[in-house]
Amino acid sequence: MGRAAMRLTGSQLRCVRGGREIFAGLDFTADAGEPLAVVGANGAGKTSLLRLIAGLIAPAGGSVTFAGGEDDLSPAEQAHYLGHRDALKSALSVMENLTFWRAALGGEATDLDAALNAVGLDHIAQLPAAYLSAGQRRRLSIARLLAVKRPIWLLDEPTSSLDANGQAMMADLMRAHLSRGGVIVAATHLPLGIAARELRIGERVS
């Protein structure tokens, strides 16, 4: 690659939603190759932190920087966000959904058949997404991470609605992404399936 190792840094982040302060003075770093697991109680702000990194919430203070990526793009434009909502159109087929996101997201494109194969959906590529189960929809969302190469993966409960088999698959994919020098920040209260550094948030000094 010839680049410096990637590093995602947040400094003194403060998040306010609906007049309520979710967290303040939050620092974190996520290095290439080592996943960062964000843990904390319900309402501690795990999802808010991910959405803040993804540029979907404006921080009330502090900043997120990404070193080692492309300088003219914001961290959000170099990130994949896997949220609770799967961003799938039921009217389109599995393949059409994936093709659309590959074109829309922008970035280094890859082979879609390989991506669908990796998440185990290649046999139903032409079916409408409406017929997919919750687990299959999740797998299709995950295929999006593979369809376009972006260095940062922001994963919100990545293993939810996946069976044991799917969780193992997700762990493999994360390991492969890390070994290519990618960055992962995952919010979870389930085991992630791979060794990760923990960032505990929401522990208040009262």
């Binding site: 959405r51 434009e77 909502r85 961003a87 997201l105």
Partner: peptide
């Protein structure tokens, strides 16, 4: 917005 597409569209490079 409801299905999360809008989140991803804002993260696109367009």
């Amino acid at each position: 917005h409801d299905d999360g597409s809008l989140d991803l569209l804002t993260m696109s490079r367009t």
